[in-house]
């Protein structure tokens, strides 16, 4: 079994355990603070998934910059891995957010919430990059174009972060790293931490596997090219 696949298994087990703990063990929130206290537990998925998405989009940014400025094949693989992982974790975050929003706000989407929308856009950008790249033959033209969009997408990350803090309309503010004491209960924090670690391991596993896949695809394409040429 490859390194990436081992991390995938480990991360997946961790995520499963997190959800089990979230469902059966984590303390319930105050009924006064939330419309739907049970649905609030979705944040054990939602927050770690958003964290993993930021890791993935960070990888997309580094990979895109590495390709555009250094022409590094390794960086291109990181771009591919980051965009695929960003797409998956972005969808997980948005989807879990919609499920939570439907229960808590009565609507799965709020067009006026900046954080929600910028995160949705980031995910759409990942969809655009992944589908667009798959539609093109591999080459410097497509790599340059999608790497440029990878860089552009990262501009949305600080926008999303700032929006979290200053432009919250409906969306709850950040629950970790706020500097306030007691922003979340200790047991809740423990489950959330387990979730964050599991998602981190899982997404790194996915990116390693994806980078290996891209390398294999390039090797296959090179070999096929040589074979077509009659080696």
């Amino acid at each position: 079994m490859k390194w990436g696949e081992m991390l995938l298994l480990l991360g997946f087990t961790g995520i499963g355990s997190t959800l089990l703990l979230a469902l059966l063990w984590a303390p319930s929130v105050s009924l006064d603070a939330f419309e739907s206290p049970a649905a609030q537990r979705i944040f054990y998925w939602h927050v770690p998934a958003a964290w993993a998405a930021f890791i993935a989009f960070g990888a997309l940014f580094i990979g895109s910059a590495g390709w555009l400025f250094r022409r590094s094949e390794w960086a291109w693989r990181l771009h591919v891995a980051g965009s695929e992982a960003g797409l998956a974790t972005g969808l997980m975050t948005v989807w879990s957010g919609c499920v939570w929003g439907a229960a808590e706000w009565g609507t799965p989407w709020d067009w006026t919430d900046v954080r929600l929308n910028t995160f949705g856009l980031l995910t759409l950008l990942a969809v655009y990059v992944v589908l667009g790249r798959n539609s093109q033959p591999d080459g410097v033209e497509s790599r340059d174009t999608f790497a440029a969009f990878g860089l552009y997408g990262f501009v949305l990350v600080p926008v999303t972060y700032i929006a979290t803090r200053i432009w919250t309309i409906r969306h709850p503010g950040p629950v970790v790293a706020t500097g306030d004491e007691g922003s979340i209960n200790g047991d809740m924090g423990l489950v959330l931490l387990l979730g964050a670690i599991s998602f981190t391991v899982f997404i790194i596993g996915h990116m390693l596997t994806s980078m290996r896949l891209t390398a294999l695809e390039q090797r296959l394409s090179n070999l096929q090219g040589q074979h077509d040429g009659g080696i």
Binding site: W111, L121, Q136, P137, T145
Partner: peptide, 26 residues
């Protein structure tokens, strides 16, 4: 922005247009 691509018509530029909905609601 897709003009350099070998198959520009195969790229879904429409996926990027929701970026304009937020400024619209604001």
């Amino acid at each position: 922005s897709t003009q350099r691509l070998a198959r520009p018509q195969a790229v879904f530029v429409g996926l990027l247009t929701p970026v304009l909905i937020l400024p619209y609601s604001l």
